[in-house]
């Protein structure tokens, strides 16, 4: 079985986000970029499936600007076997919408015929939480979102999902789209020898046009602003003072 893992290049989760002065978005020029943390978990799970003998090939895909090949090299260094880069934008500030990403991924799935797609549940830039579900709809496949446990067994997979009330376990028919949550696994670090090896692994370069997908956004960005800052508070010196302040504020 082949595993397909879409990975996204996003601003590193430790970097302080700055809104561009013209309101068009967040400043991404000369900012540290990394693989979306949820996608790292998906890559790790794909590699574990291969290590467990349940998968024989892990293919990483990234859709975006040319620089996304760095993200793919990270996936290859972690252990993915090969990569597909789909260039769909020139400007690093262009975010390809989940619907267009799902359409490109569908075309890749049609070509590659994976038995499972493992994706991050959301990207930490647009926080849309949509691509996996959309791909699943376009393919007419089953979906297991927000997975914290995954057990692939032949023609079905058991997925434990993190939901508002606690945990839900479902059984999905294969092939399936699984979107992964934080507690599925702890992604490995790429070792230096593996980083060197990754440079020689195959990386195909394609464009959105190769798959006949129109990536024109459906959502026009009208403006981007900083959220209102909270007014600075005070430090209290003791529990007594805290209780007093809370009573004054009518909070208790």
């Amino acid at each position: 079985m082949k595993v397909l893992v879409p990975v996204k290049r996003v601003i590193d989760y430790n970097v302080k986000v700055r809104v561009k002065a013209d309101g068009s978005g967040v400043d991404l020029a000369n900012v540290k970029m990394s693989m979306n943390p949820f996608d790292e978990i998906a890559v790790e799970q794909a590699i574990r499936l291969r290590e467990a003998g349940k998968a024989d090939e892990v293919v990483a895909v990234s859709i975006g600007v040319k620089q996304s090949q760095e993200t793919l090299r990270t996936a290859l260094a972690m252990g993915a076997d090969r990569a597909i880069l789909v260039i769909a934008a020139d400007d690093v500030h262009t975010d390809i919408e989940p619907l267009a990403v799902a359409k490109i991924l569908k075309a890749i799935v049609d070509e590659e015929q994976p038995g499972i797609v493992l994706a991050g549940k959301q990207a930490i830039d647009n926080d849309m939480n949509a691509t996996g579900q959309m791909l699943s709809a376009l393919l007419g496949w089953s979906q297991g979102t927000f997975a914290s446990e995954l057990d692939v067994d032949g023609d079905s997979a058991t997925v434990t999902r993190e939901v508002d009330g606690g945990l839900q376990t479902i059984k999905v028919k294969m092939p399936a789209i699984i979107t992964v949550d934080l507690r599925l696994n702890e992604p490995r670090y790429a070792s230096l020898p593996n980083i060197m090896k990754a440079k020689k692994k195959p990386l195909d370069e394609k464009t959105a046009a190769d798959y006949g997908v129109d990536v024109t956004p459906r959502l026009e960005i009208v403006g981007t602003t900083e959220p209102e800052a909270r007014a600075a508070g005070i430090k209290v010196g003791s529990v007594d003072e805290l209780v007093e302040k809370l009573k004054e504020a009518g909070a208790v």
Partner: peptide
């Protein structure tokens, strides 16, 4: 977006 660090 960005964990609430910007409103779009």
């Amino acid at each position: 977006i960005y964990a609430g660090n910007a409103i779009q």
